[in-house]
Nucleic acid binder design. Structure first.
Length: 438
DNA sequence: TCTGGGGTCCTAGGACCC
DNA sequence: TCTGGGGTCCTAGGACCC
């Protein structure tokens, strides 16, 4: 078990940085990456942040910056980001003996037992990631994961906003190496809301109580925090005080639920296209399920109208239990479609639907059953069919083999999503690989 | 007039994360 | 006209049990 110190390596404005690797002309320009359907900004370059564009800002509210400030917007290219992430993670792993991949652009590194100057070592790793992948990142180091996370935030803020922190904390910030008075000065200059685990709500409550800085939060009595708030915040306070409460998780735990949900490219009212969409989402969810070696007991399906648009509201969901736990696409699709039939009502402009797989269990733990229907052979055969389907789709691409209920003609998928600004799959598709000229 | 105590399980909702 | 997707954990309250 890793006892710390810990590092957090985090790609700067990750999706934007991935795009810039292949389009260097975007350097220095305000750039945002948009969510599915080109709906809202999910990544922003520093220049875009400087324009005041907030995380999650709807595109239609910020697109005037394209004219006035040269803002460039790109559709999310998750295939590209996933591949760039793999490259960055394998280099970050060189910082210490253990690694926990926390999100697509972040990993914690356990530094227990690492000798020598950690700050210096982190600078070398940062520079290697930059040179080998083109992705700039920030590295924070601290005695607990929460402090490492905070250090990472400081490393980025010090770089992005000169004057906010001492300049030597930019890019790599090692809070564990700071003398006490300097550490307190840094914590005193950081708002509580910037702490990992303190969201908008709790930040408000803390501020009402006069707790505005991280230093003030760190000085609270943990027992009081537990009484007044929760064990979660208590843990955060202890971690800020330097007591590790959150361990490294090197092996990603199996998901406890799996969802596939999408907003439509435009509103859908009729049942048929809705059935197609839900069938497609259920298939995708089933693939993820088999990938982690689980079976599902209950399938939830939902659909709703836009929360932003006027008109009659509709928001319904239903849980459909499977007769027995399964990972079979056709059974899961069947359950989802049956559920949709139950909740469907005509006359609503639906904007989103989704399928969630609940009550997951490892596929080797399935409860034995007296085979009254004598379908054991069929179940085994279906298992082989699913395996064949996954192999083919892996080899020849998503959707090579699919259930017919998802609709056979892409062009007629009126529910399909809009993606008007997607860049090529530079690193994962032969025909998209960039060509270098001498 | 007077109405126990303790425990578990489930669900919905809140809060947080990226 | 146009507002993402996928998760986790905790807590409170209700149902139910002995």
């Amino acid at each position: 078990m890793s006892a710390g110190p810990f590092a957090l390596v985090d790609g700067n404005n990750f999706y934007v940085s991935c795009e810039r690797v292949f389009r260097p002309s975007l350097n220095g320009m305000p750039v945002v990456v948009l969510s599915n359907n080109d709906g809202c900004a999910i990544a922003r370059s520093n220049e875009a942040k400087a324009l005041g564009i907030k995380m999650g800002a709807p595109w239609f509210e910020i697109k005037h910056f394209a004219e006035s400030a040269g803002l460039v917007a790109l559709s999310a290219n998750f295939t590209l980001y996933g591949d760039m992430s793999d490259r960055m993670m394998s280099l970050a792993a060189g910082l210490g003996p253990t690694q926990e991949i926390y999100s697509i652009d972040e990993s914690f590194i356990g530094l227990d037992g690492v000798r020598g100057d950690l700050t210096d070592r982190a600078r070398k790793v940062r520079s290697r990631i930059l040179v080998w992948t083109g992705i700039p990142c920030g590295i924070g180091i601290g005695p607990t994961k929460t402090l490492a996370k905070l250090a990472n935030y400081i490393s980025k803020t010090a770089e992005r906003k000169p004057g906010s922190y001492p300049p030597e904390l930019a890019q790599v910030c090692n809070l564990a190496a700071l003398p006490r008075d300097e550490l307190e000065a840094v914590l005193g200059a950081t708002a509580v809301g910037d702490v990992w685990g303190v969201g908008r709500r709790i930040a408000e409550q803390l501020e009402e109580g006069g707790i505005r800085t991280v230093l003030e939060l760190a000085r609270l009595d943990p027992a009081t925090v537990r009484r007044r708030w929760s064990v979660v915040l208590e843990r955060t306070v202890r971690e800020l005080q330097g007591m590790p409460c959150v361990q490294m998780e090197e092996v990603p735990a199996a998901k406890k639920e799996i969802a596939h949900t999408r907003s439509f490219g435009r509103v859908v009212t009729a049942l048929e296209p809705l059935l197609e969409a839900v069938s497609e989402y259920a298939s995708r969810a089933a693939e993820k399920l088999r990938k982690q070696g689980s079976v599902v007991g209950n399938v939830l399906v939902f659909a709703h109208t836009s929360p932003y648009r006027p008109g009659p509201k509709y928001h319904r969901s239903v849980v459909v239990p499977l007769r027995r736990p399964s990972s079979d696409t056709s059974l899961i699709v069947h359950a989802a479609m049956a559920g949709l039939h139950q909740i469907y009502q005509p006359g609503f402009d639906l904007i989103k639907a989704g399928v969630m797989l609940l009550d997951l269990a490892p596929d080797y733990l399935v409860q034995g059953e007296l085979d009254l229907e004598d379908d054991g052979a069929e179940v085994a055969e279906r298992g082989r069919l699913m395996k064949a389907m996954d192999v083919l789709n892996n080899r020849f691409g998503k959707g090579t083999l699919q259930v017919a209920s998802s609709g056979l003609d892409d062009a007629h998928r009126e529910w399909g999503m809009r993606q008007e600004r997607r860049t090529p799959h530079y690193t994962t598709k032969i025909s998209d690989i960039p060509i270098a000229r001498a």
